[in-house]
Amino acid sequence: MEKREEILDEENINQMESGTDEMVEAAEMEERKIDDGVIIKFDNVKKVFGSDFAALEDISLEIQEGEFVSIVGASGAGKSTFLKLIYAEEMPTGGEVYFEGKPLSGISRRKLPFHRRRIGTVFQDFKLLPKKTAFENVAYAMEVSGAPTDEIMEDVPQILDIVGLSDKMEKYPHELSGGEQQKVVMARALIHKPIVIIADEPTGNLDPVASLEIVKLLLKINKLGTTVILASHDREVVNKAAKRVIVLERGRVVCDDARGKYKMC
């Protein structure tokens, strides 16, 4: 009980700090839209798998719109579960996750796809379709949501240009390097113009140079106003981002620094 209150207090302070931090950044970057709105809120969330394994416990925190948050922690600390709760792949066992002020537990299965279109996801293992070209992989995300063909023909090259792959649109995933494949995934994540990008170990399969490029890309996306949540155990990646860092340990938040470095609390 005592420990929990401690964590909560710490979080409140961090929250205030991150709020002021945002203000400073806003002054620095005029193009960035600043809204004090909380976009994601975890309220005393608990997630238990099976009958006794608690992947997450006592998670209460807020993420502001436009924030860049790094989630760090050892394997099995609950990073992926934390992210899955946001894109509603998993539902909390206790507590509640709010997205734009609305509880996710109230979302119907029919509405779930629309929730997912507001969130772009990037994974360590890319999850690209091997029999489709870079262009088709990105176009596929639009096709499944019923976008008209002319819109697809217009938007896809644009987004591939943003990630720097305009010359490799017709290449298949196996013809691309790991970094390039991850860029295709980023393009796919961005195609719906999501308000949040979730990246689960996006650099896990990449060499340091490619990793750096991906982080730069994430920072660029964040600069344009999209909230980014990055889970990683790569020290370099997190330090490069130099933004808010939340440290998870055995399913609990042990640190939450507004301008953090990779560390173990």
Binding site: P113, Y140, S145
Partner: peptide, 11 residues
């Protein structure tokens, strides 16, 4: 992938 990119269940 379809689920991740938000394809409707019907689709």
């Amino acid at each position: 992938v379809m689920r991740l990119v938000g394809a409707s269940n019907t689709f």
